[in-house]
Amino acid sequence: MRLYSYDDYQVGVGVPDGGIVRATQFLPDVPPRDRMTALIERWERLREPIADLVTGATPIDLASVRLLPPQPHPGLLIAAPVNYRRHQQEMGGESGVYPGMVVHTIETYAGFVKASSSIVGPDDAIELPFEDRRVDHEAELGVVIGATASRVHRDRAMDYVFGYVPLLDITLRGDEDRSYRKSFDTFTPIGPAIVTRDAVPGADALDFRLTVNGDIRQRANTRDLIYGISRLVELYSAAMTLHAGDIIATGTPEGVGPISPGDEVVLRIDEVGELRMPVTLRKALTVNRQDQPAIRGLS
């Protein structure tokens, strides 16, 4: 199934013709922003009633609603740093994004946390905070956790995966810590829907690509991840308890590059969906440019 959040945090289920069937009535006791998390937590109980509802309901036209991020309020948003070998090669070395630097992989860096407030949906925009700092696109598969996971072995890890979502890890280049540079408001677009795990049986071998203004920038397959989905769940659940609705950003392949106001970034992941985002310049700066360090640092 495809699960959506829309308008005033209504939750809905996609139908084959592209419409949405409202399912908020199954969650009468839940605060609006937490409805998708509650739906994920109660999925085993609600899946059949929702499937029955979809069969007989009249769908809402997608074009008539405002699509929000399908998971607007995860408790944890954790990301895998440098999880493709070719991305490591393009970041460091003599001709990399950071010339002369040694850029390590997930095997050294393990992970970092992004602010969940950086999440936006497909009817929003990526807002660049500075006119004179480089900001890059990074195309990723997002993994949505389905149940409390603590110290889970990779052999059982997929039992804790609820579904998948296209995800952009937008990145300000510079000296600041990763978690700061990647946590600006609007720097984690996701959507348009969460696709449940049963609908994506081949998640470890998904083709995906990213274009900017129609030009292909990134093209890869999740089979090339250094740490695949199961190992990422194992790694992160060994350090911190994961809960239903949490999101893991699995890492980006080679081809990252700068984006500018007026660009359109499109991420297409086979079986998962297409996320289309415009790029704008933030209208009111909240941080003085003179306080920002030079453009150096880790990816």
Results as ranks from 00 to 15, higher is better:
75 G>F: 01
70 P>Y: 00
14 G>L: 09
19 G>Q: 08
175 D>M: 10
285 L>G: 09
159 D>P: 11
209 R>K: 11
125 A>W: 02
80 A>L: 03
104 H>C: 05
80 A>F: 07
154 R>T: 11
245 G>D: 08
209 R>L: 10
256 V>G: 00
7 D>H: 00
68 L>V: 00
299 S>P: 14
112 F>G: 01
240 M>H: 08
297 G>S: 05
125 A>Q: 12
209 R>A: 14
292 Q>V: 14
51 A>E: 12
19 G>N: 10
213 N>K: 02
109 Y>G: 01
273 G>Q: 00
252 T>C: 08
130 F>S: 04
224 D>W: 10
206 L>W: 10
156 R>K: 14
8 D>A: 12
214 G>R: 01
90 E>Q: 07
263 D>M: 10
23 A>S: 10
192 P>T: 06
15 V>F: 11
211 T>E: 13
145 I>H: 05
138 E>N: 11
39 L>W: 05
22 R>Y: 02
176 E>Y: 12
240 M>G: 00
215 D>N: 10
187 F>W: 08
46 L>D: 04
101 M>F: 09
212 V>N: 01
219 R>K: 15
178 R>D: 05
211 T>Q: 06
173 R>D: 08
184 F>L: 06
293 P>A: 07
157 A>T: 05
229 I>M: 08
102 V>M: 01
82 V>F: 04
244 A>K: 08
193 A>T: 07
63 A>D: 15
105 T>L: 02
20 I>C: 01
202 G>F: 09
152 V>M: 12
289 R>H: 04
42 R>F: 00
115 A>D: 15
165 V>G: 03
29 D>Q: 15
32 P>V: 04
210 L>W: 06
23 A>E: 03
179 S>L: 04
243 H>E: 14
217 R>V: 11
255 G>I: 03
64 S>K: 11
152 V>I: 15
140 E>H: 04
185 D>T: 02
19 G>S: 10
256 V>R: 03
221 N>Q: 09
200 V>L: 07
54 V>D: 00
64 S>L: 05
148 T>Q: 14
4 Y>G: 03
291 D>Q: 10
161 V>G: 07
213 N>V: 03
34 D>S: 15
86 R>G: 03
188 T>E: 04
145 I>K: 04
293 P>Q: 08
268 R>S: 09
98 Y>F: 14
8 D>G: 03
246 D>M: 04
262 G>L: 08
281 L>N: 01
154 R>S: 12
26 F>I: 05
294 A>M: 09
191 G>M: 01
236 Y>F: 13
164 Y>G: 04
44 E>V: 06
66 R>T: 06
212 V>L: 01
218 Q>I: 06
138 E>I: 07
65 V>I: 10
207 D>A: 13
229 I>C: 14
122 P>H: 00
65 V>Y: 03
151 R>E: 15
161 V>T: 07
228 G>E: 09
256 V>S: 09
